[in-house]
């Protein structure tokens, strides 16, 4: 489009608002903000078409720090806000910034429905496994037995896995990355931005104050080698030093197992297929948890389906094409009328 050619070349600075960023020192949120700012100017979308929506929590302050349209909403409801915005104006690129408590506890219902509807929005879930803003209670993703201010003897709640939840909703795009894994995070955010439909990204985010080190196993340069596996479409799942370890599917138990790559035929390894409509293998991967397994990072699933906003608006067009544009006076005068 000619209009796009005239667009000023934007830089990350153009997306910076005049508000001072107020997260705690060394909070993982800083890195996520930086990567988003890096990706936005590369998308060829004018700045005024971005809308960042959030709920409540540390992560939900995000929209204030970007010089786009922004709506800091109420706890858990960001997906519903985004639905109103996107259905009203599908021309906008709408992002939802949320946290584990916001998205999976108070807002679990809204997340479920935005994912199943496949509304064309990008959802980034900052998972720090804790309530930060309210000063350190356990969250729906905190591990079983977690000791916090509200669980002095350890929590007896089983945690929910964001990826498994998203798969259960049959989301069309599901990915995971880590706050300080800068290159990988940039890649995943870019992929999410370019996906048509609900893009769901879980980011492991360190809460330096209330849950420091919760993801050290996936952040530390050395430790992560054995603890995460990077997903690449069409490639086998390999990890560990020199990628000597792989994941194989035990076809009798239907469970994944870690194998020594040198001891199995390459075709025996599990290959990643992000485009698979059938989500069973993705489920299997999403359920691989540290420390038993390396945890998958990258794009777990990316399939194409019509988007909600597109279909809602297509019905409007279809109705107008079929019956002509609405005429209120004609409507008022239809049916049984009488004149006095």
């Amino acid at each position: 489009m000619t209009q796009q050619k005239q667009l000023p070349v934007l830089t990350p600075r153009d997306f910076e608002s005049d508000q001072p960023v107020r997260w705690c020192p060394r909070c993982g949120d800083y890195s996520i903000l930086a990567q988003v700012k890096k990706v936005l100017p590369t998308l060829g979308i004018p700045r005024e078409k971005f809308v960042f929506v959030s709920g409540i929590g540390c992560s939900s302050r995000f929209p204030y720090y970007l010089n786009t349209y922004g709506f800091h909403g109420i706890h858990g409801r960001a997906p519903a806000l985004a639905t109103g915005i996107k259905v009203a104006n599908p021309d906008l690129q709408v992002w939802v910034i949320t946290g584990d408590g916001d998205a999976l506890s108070i807002g679990g219902n809204h997340l479920l429905h935005v994912l199943r509807r496949n509304l064309d929005v990008k959802v980034i879930l900052f998972n720090n496994q804790i309530y930060g803003l309210t000063k350190g209670q356990y969250s729906p993703t905190s591990p079983f037995g977690k000791k916090t201010y509200s669980t002095p003897m350890g929590s007896v709640d089983n945690p929910v896995s964001p990826l498994v939840f998203a798969l259960g909703c049959e989301a069309t795009f599901i990915a995971r990355s880590v706050d300080i894994d800068i290159q990988h995070l940039t890649y995943v955010i870019e992929r999410a931005a370019k996906h048509r439909g609900t893009a769901f990204v879980e980011v492991y985010q360190d809460c330096n104050v209330f849950n420091s080190g919760a993801f050290e196993y996936a952040q530390d340069r050395v430790k992560k080698i054995d603890n995460v596996v990077y997903l690449e479409h069409g490639k086998p799942l390999l990890f560990g030093k020199d990628k000597k370890k792989g994941i194989r599917l035990d076809r009798t138990t239907m469970k994944p197992e870690i194998v020594d790559v040198s001891k199995v035929a390459p075709d025996d390894l599990l290959f990643h297929d992000e485009k698979a409509e059938e989500p069973t293998l993705a489920f299997l991967l999403a359920r691989m948890r540290y420390p038993e397994f390396p945890e998958p990072l990258g794009v777990l699933r990316a399939i194409e389906k019509p988007t909600y906003d597109e279909m809602v608006n297509a019905q409007i067009t279809e109705a107008i094409e079929k019956f002509g544009p609405g005429d209120l006076e004609k409507l008022f005068n239809s049916g049984d009328t009488w004149t006095v």
Binding site: V53, Y69, G73, R77, A80, A82, T83, G84, I85, H110
Partner: peptide, 19 residues
């Protein structure tokens, strides 16, 4: 928009108003 609940119906209304 037939929302998932009353809360979402109201919140989506806020979103559409913003838009």
């Amino acid at each position: 928009f037939q929302a998932e609940d009353e809360i979402a119906a109201m919140t989506a209304t806020c979103g559409a108003a913003f838009a």
